[in-house]
Design a binder for these strands. Structure first.
Lengths: 199, 199, 199, 199
DNA sequence: GGGTAATCGAGACGGTACGTCGTGTCTTTCC
DNA sequence: GGAAAGACACGACGTACCGTCTCGATTACCC
């Protein structure tokens, strides 16, 4: 924080990494302190001691800035325990905990909110979500490869279902999910809720 | 549309239902035409030929107005086909179609977005979502009562999972879901994705 | 200055004279203190504790605001001494002194400068200058009526010439004109510089 | 125009005359096309394909650049017809026509406007105007030498009066002056407007 | 039946943020 | 060491809404 005090000047005809750093840091701080409502380019610029045009030069929209903050911060674990059920439980537990304990939760909430009004944010979010479905889907693919899961199952669809549960808990402020509930949800997805015939 | 043309005056020292009606109608129209981005109290007042204070008097926040619009519009079917699987498929199909084909989709997207920054909106949304989980959960309860579903299953948790899938598709602009995918998701929840032992 | 401290609120759906007053006063003060370079709508709004939109609501441009300030401040004497020569000397002396000793000088300089880039300002200035030529021309007309001045003389043209001298002295920072020079200029206009034949 | 197409490179550690030329040419063009409102160092640099610092290195302010453009462009005739009256008419006609038909008009308007806010511009303009008064005054001096004009007349003062008329017409967009008016103004200055005694 | 009181449309108010433009300074790379 | 390029911090631009206010009018309700 002390090196931030002095005014940053241009370092010539190229991007100043110190400014980019300061802006991302400020965006994170503003969001953490004031939430989505208080998050504005103006506030970030003030906080970062940066000019608004500097922000707009590199991030075309609020959403782009938020996505960048999110990317730098997120820390996903794609567990590989050898059993699909515990993989999903670990994935959900880790994801919700990460959202709850770091600034990533508020940031991602803001991104989703932003995407509801801003078209480009919607596109960016859609692209990101798709890539995440593929990534998360690999967890399912491994289970298919292991023969643990039926071959007809589409990994992306299951990944969609799993992360939807997490998204909605984020959006409705229910990140402190009981582990029992995670387990129940996971069990539903893996083994279903219908009584087994002959059982 | 003809009743909109003439200017509404006060009808004395009590609420004018025509104004309330006009405001809700205008809110719906603004949202349908301009989306969440163009939705503002100012725009609604302009459209309804109402004063801003009239809106603020009866709806303390944007979210309250949106929720009111949503309540008047939603049309849920809680199917009862006698089989949990077709119940869920019908429920999801109906819900997504309703969101896609009416203004309820944009309205609900806006409510969720609003709830990310506005505390009271968040509360209202949380309460609403909880009541819907109970309502939707009844579909599961009936299956439990029929003995179709294992007794240990918490209906609200399954309802949560089912509607989370719908919410996220709404929020990411994927309302035109393939029926096959709905079926796949439903099958996962009812029968699981794990290979049956002994098969 | 003490009554200005408390925040002015709206007084209903009509213009608040206190705000208009405060804005004009602030405009005058900003111009007096910082000159044309420091004069901005932003600065006036800050100084007047008014919102920028309030200024833009009533004055469409910087020039309109400046003109209004000028109108409120100017104090012209149209002398009528019975002799055209002393009338013009008095007029010029008074005009230059007024520009030098009050804020009207800087204000009018700003208006002229503004009119060089802003089309609407140019129009407003042209209209104002024309009306002033007519007004000042009356001084000449009286001399014509008295038979002091030849009948063929166009009062507006002479008024133009007289005030041009003043304008240019304002614009080039030469408001402290020697009275001798005013007299010389006036004598040229009234009696010419060419030697009288037979004199 | 062809030399503008290819990118000028640095020619080493000395001033590149091609750049200076391109900048002055661009300044003229920008002013001719967009007027004073669109004239900015930024726009000139863009047009000249030059870096802003290159401009700032050689011209410390907008005004300096404008003055330079003006100097290169102006074309004054100091007529010498042998009669003061036709000299002044020719001078004014030529000056106004020059301002109207070339870019010098807009350029000089800009310089005057600039001088109202920029101190150094004001100084430069004052110096220039003084030198022009002396130059134009020579026209009067010749008439004095011819014995056409009274000896007590200060040439600079009359020059001031004459060019003031032109300046104000430039500044108020009245360059298309009727020749009759020029004649009337000139006649006023040379022979006065007061009826001759004994007539 | 007359006075009060609440509601209406309207729109001005002080503000905040928007996204863009221009300012003058700085630094690097190339010649 | 000058020239190009363009990033930088800054701040004004003019606009859109925010939520609050005060108005004049229009009734219903209570005395």
């Amino acid at each position: 924080m002390n090196s931030e005090e002095k005014i940053r000047k241009s370092i010539g005809a190229r991007r100043n990494p110190a400014s980019a750093e300061a802006i991302l840091e400020a965006a994170k701080a503003v969001l953490a302190e004031s939430g989505h409502a208080g998050f504005s380019i103006e506030a970030v610029a003030r906080r970062a001691r940066a000019g608004k045009p500097t922000i707009y030069r590199w991030w075309p929209s609020r959403a782009a800035l938020l996505l960048d903050v999110y990317q730098r911060q997120k820390q996903f674990a794609y567990p590989d325990t050898g059993r699909i059920e515990s993989d999903i439980v670990a994935f959900l537990t880790n994801l919700l905990a990460n959202w709850r304990d770091t600034v990533t939760g508020p940031v991602f909430r803001s991104i989703i909110a932003e995407a509801q009004s801003d078209g480009s944010a919607a596109e960016a979010l859609a692209a990101y979500a798709a890539s995440r479905r593929i990534e998360t889907g690999k967890m399912i693919e491994r289970a298919v490869a292991r023969g643990e899961v039926a071959a007809g199952v589409d990994p992306a669809v299951i990944a969609d279902l799993v992360s939807s549960f997490a998204w909605v808990h984020l959006l409705t402020g229910r990140l402190d999910v009981n582990e029992e509930e995670i387990r129940a949800v996971t069990r539903a997805i893996t083994h279903g809720i219908v009584k087994k015939s002959g059982t």
